[in-house]
Design a protein around this nucleic acid. Sequence first.
DNA 1: GTAATAGTGTCTCTAAGACAATATAGG
DNA 2: CCTATATTGTCTTAGAGACACTATTAC
Lengths: 232, 232
Amino acid sequence: MGRIHEAVRLTADLIILTIRDGALNVLLVERENEPHRGRLALPGGFLRGDEPLERTAERELAEETGLDASAFRLRQVRVYSEPDRDPRRPRVITCGFLAIAPNLPSPVAGSDARSARWVPVVEAAGAALAFDHGRILADAVDLARDLLQFSTVATAFCGPEFTIGDLREVYETVWGVALDRPNFHRKVTDALGFVEPTGGKRPSPGGRPAALYRAGGATELSPPMMRPRVDA
Amino acid sequence: MGRIHEAVRLTADLIILTIRDGALNVLLVERENEPHRGRLALPGGFLRGDEPLERTAERELAEETGLDASAFRLRQVRVYSEPDRDPRRPRVITCGFLAIAPNLPSPVAGSDARSARWVPVVEAAGAALAFDHGRILADAVDLARDLLQFSTVATAFCGPEFTIGDLREVYETVWGVALDRPNFHRKVTDALGFVEPTGGKRPSPGGRPAALYRAGGATELSPPMMRPRVDA
DNA sequence: GTAATAGTGTCTCTAAGACAATATAGG
DNA sequence: CCTATATTGTCTTAGAGACACTATTAC
């Protein structure tokens, strides 16, 4: 085989999003090796042996967060193959994988990455992440915003039981808009398979207690949750 | 670097869709080399030197169709990295790129691929394509169907000038449904930036001549063109 | 005239959005 | 009682869909 078909190395980079303290957060690690040593970066790693790239992503997810990767649905964001995105040779090309996580108890129970921590997305977008991870993060957040519109993934940001108010806060946080409470409530409870009541209730601070729900069986959301028009 | 990070080779495979004789067609080539020699496959090729994968795709598009790749908008479908998808070693991992083309004059004016030809998608889905190209094609067609819904790419299936009827046939062909003519007409002409009239007309077979339009400036379509509900 | 296709008008119905009103808790 | 949050009700309006109707050509 000719040298013209340069061999490359592939990595899977993870964009693990969650909501903490009312803000969208992403899991970042501090790089311990060159290049970009000490910079914040998305967790990720090299494709190994005979695994598909999806398994690479699952493996890294488990290593970085200590969570069972099978509980998450990973989604490809896209491939990043600019020749200068990584100075190493042979070239390093990556694929972004989006994961949506509920609010996790400790900062991160992960083993491998002692330096892993949650960072608000607005803050991460301001910081200069390693490689082209800033761009990858932005693309993943865009994807997440679209997913909220047409699928039921919003429940993945919540725990096993949640209130309609919790779910509304997910939309408001990820989209950065305020939604009408009564209309949101009706829309969500009317959509088939989005949420189903558990029968339980949770007290609200100084108000009527909210009914608890769990995620329903549907993955597609129809009619979609319309994002309010942005009048530019 | 340890052997654990096996080097891989990357290819870009193209799913070039067009409409011919009222049917959705895809450009396929007959493989001239092993593996899968003689089988139908998507056009594509290896990443070369220091180019990004997008340029690989553009290059192959130009080589296979003779068309200027800059006239097309290529979209990543996704990465296919199953270890057994290609028997060659080192592993070959590919990324699908969707291209939407107007009805081209000759079968294919391409230079390199003498065996390139348009194949109806329904026929290609039945035939056993090389590698996992059947799956890639199916994913790309799904993506195209979604794009019609939320973007203005339908005009890319048409030439520089087209009638509303032409555009309606694009939707009907790709979605495989019949659409209401009056409602479609109003919807398209009312949407901002979707189409703009050229002032010209084109005679219809035994009917009132149709006004000609060209693609408008918008890329997003809002409100989206709703695909009729499928009652499974 | 008829046939065929292009385009307009109008009605119904679903669903989004605004917002009033009611329900249920803690103080 | 008041306050805060959850939930239901009601009205308005945008837009999808059905379909009658008009317009413009070829024959």
